[in-house]
Design a protein around this nucleic acid. Structure first.
Length: 568
RNA sequence: GCACGCAUAGCUCAGCUGGAUAGAGCAUCUGACUUCGGAUCAGAGGGUCGUGGGUUCAAAUCCUACUGCGUGUGCCA
């Protein structure tokens, strides 16, 4: 499509030499209504230069427009120049590249554009994986695939929350409310119970918080008993996480969490001091950010132990040294906006020019129906695994009803059920808050993941029933001249520019919206046209359209981290 | 208080760096192939784009003030 648009821009450039092809390209638009052509060029901006009314300019350009093999008609409506392309040329221009690239359509697999580090998922150890962690995991995973498709070499980092005062809390809780035996038996469930209990008790007994802090300080100083417990809790949690990542089909290149930076922070603090950025206030070390309109960034507490920001600044530096990144992306909830603004600013003040390559990608919060919060501390939790299980079960019952003879139902149910959850989380702009609703998550009709998967499965089904023999070079694309076919082709042609935009805006939702658009255009095409017709050349032409749709849908879903079963 | 974010149909939201009658899905109602998968398709109703100013030939989109909601704001992450 981009190619098409460039060619139109070149034609117009011959008529309006004062504008560059790039300028014209930018002004060119796709009209809201196909009745108004395939492309439109508004002439308002030419008024000053030509010193004429825009409609007159439009008319002159149209009158002098040379005949072209791929422009069927060109006319002006007021100040707009509407361009109607030759449809068989249009369809061929779009479908040929797709049918050449096949499974790689849309993807630049070169890894030639440099490194990108994506910090995502990053759950806190000792807390179960709940619905709130899903967003970071799913969005980060999608951005990883989007940037790979754009030609970058991505590195997924699971910055585990495996260090910090919370461990002190857990240790105090363990000593007071639990035992080795119970935790060995119940695992993370018990860790959660005592963590919640700790917060309840600490409200009445603030000394508990002090005790927790001192336990964490012990950890930082290398206390053996404390570290032993820490290691144990971490193992229990990692097992749980791995199970969920497997269901979601998400992987990481590194699990270097906060603890990994424990022995790397001292040099960074010294560097901050050497660069005169540190001020000591009430016993704590901090970096003043008043002139940047932000509160100060705490580097160490008054007992000398480190904080979240200390570890993130250290991690930022480590990642640049290790990956020499073009971008370093942090996918976390918007509550952390200030934190990352501070961290980025401190890195900037340290004089590192790559500070502006760090990006925080914030997303909105998930709350329960009725708006209750779902925080770990108050124990009001929707466990992700329960949600996934429920979605998979529901999918299975739908399959039993609609397609009882399907092979490997369990695996397909997993792909569709999980796809529904993932899709639901990324269909809207990620900054929007999400109110978790079973009704919405388990709805598989309309703008949903299963709906897109269904369109893909239908395409596969038709292709299975036909023998596609003619190579696409010999297909007569002029046979695909009905409105539904042309609209579908146009939709398919947008894929690459959609991926580019999704990357620019860090918005997987662009891909999700696009997948729905393609599915809808395909459903319409499928409904209006019988594909397996007698006329062999018409059948082959339509089958190639189906094939191109299949590649596009599958690849779009892939970018979201969703599988495309051939049957469902 | 200050900072940041959000505000479009009954509900959930699109609307690309301003452009021609503001679009989907859900929900409600009506209808559809004796052939390829009805998790589909077609149609109907439903809008002072939070409010007031401003910039512009042109504003849901940009600027500004206000209102409402959310988040954050020195020793959690």
């Amino acid at each position: 499509m981009t190619n098409l648009k460039t060619q139109i821009a070149e034609l117009l450039h011959n008529q309006i030499p004062s504008l560059t092809i790039e300028n014209i390209f930018e002004i060119l638009e796709v009209p809201a209504n196909t009745q108004m052509g395939d492309y439109a060029f508004p002439c308002f901006k030419l008024a000053k230069e030509f010193k004429k009314a825009p409609p007159l300019i439009a008319k002159e350009i149209v009158d002098n427009f040379p005949t072209s093999e791929f422009v069927d008609k060109i006319e002006n409506v007021n100040a707009y120049i509407n361009i109607y392309l030759n449809k068989s040329w249009l369809v061929e221009q779009i479908l040929s590249p797709i049918l050449t690239e096949k499974e790689n359509y849309g993807f630049d697999n070169s890894k030639s554009k440099g490194n990108i580090v994506i910090d995502f998922s990053s759950p806190n150890i000792a807390k179960p994986f709940h619905i709130g962690h899903l967003r970071s995991t799913v969005i980060g995973n999608s951005l990883y695939k989007i940037f790979e498709a754009l030609g970058y070499n991505c590195h997924g980092v699971n910055h585990l929350g495996d260090w910090g005062t919370q461990f002190g809390k857990l240790m105090v809780a363990y000593k007071n409310y639990s035992s080795k035996e119970i935790i060995e038996e119940k695992g993370i469930e018990e860790l959660l119970r005592i963590y919640v209990k700790f917060h309840e008790e600490a409200k009445l007994n603030p000394e508990l918080d002090d005790e927790a802090r001192s336990y964490f300080t012990k950890m930082e100083k290398g206390d053996e008993e404390a570290l032993e417990l820490w290691k144990w809790f971490k193992e229990i949690s990692l097992n749980e996480f791995e199970r969920v990542y497997k269901i979601l089909d998400v992987t990481f290149d590194s699990y270097n969490g906060e603890a990994f930076y424990n022995d790397k922070m001292t040099p960074v603090i010294e560097e901050l001091e050497a660069k005169n950025l540190i001020e000591i206030s009430e016993g704590a070390k901090l970096v003043r950010l008043e002139e940047d309109n932000m509160p100060p960034c705490l580097i160490t507490k008054n007992d000398g132990s480190t904080l979240y920001a200390t570890r993130d600044i250290t991690a930022a530096k480590y990642r640049y040294d290790t990956y020499n990144f073009e971008k370093s992306i942090y996918v976390t909830a918007l509550q952390q906006n200030l934190h990352f603004a501070q961290v980025f600013k401190v890195v900037d003040k340290m004089g590192y020019p790559w500070a502006n390559k760090m990006v925080h990608v914030p997303f909105g919060m998930v709350s329960g129906e009725g708006g209750q919060s779902l925080s770990t501390r108050n124990g009001n939790i929707l466990f992700l695994e329960d949600i996934l299980t429920e979605a998979i079960e529901k999918t299975k019952s739908i399959i039993e009803e609609k397609n009882p003879t399907l092979q490997n139902k369990d695996e397909v149910a997993r792909q569709v059920g999980v796809g529904a959850i993932i899709f639901n989380d990324m269909y809207n702009s990620i900054i929007k808050d999400v109110i978790f609703s079973w009704e919405q998550v388990l709805n598989f009709e309309g703008e949903t993941g299963p709906n897109v998967q269904y369109a893909h499965a239908r395409a596969c089904s038709v292709l299975r029933q036909a023998n596609l023999t003619t190579p696409y070079e010999k297909i007569d694309f002029s046979l695909l001249n009905d409105e539904a076919s042309i609209n579908l082709a146009k939709e398919l042609g947008k894929f690459k520019s959609v991926i580019r935009l999704a990357g620019q805006k860090f918005e997987p939702s662009f891909i999700a919206r696009y997948a729905v658009d393609v599915a809808q255009a395909f459903n319409k095409f499928y409904h209006d046209n019988t594909i397996l017709v007698e006329n062999a050349s018409l059948k082959e032409a339509r089958l190639n359209m189906v094939l191109a749709t299949k590649y596009t849908l599958k690849n779009a879903l892939y970018l979201l981290g969703i599988k495309s079963p051939e049957q469902m």
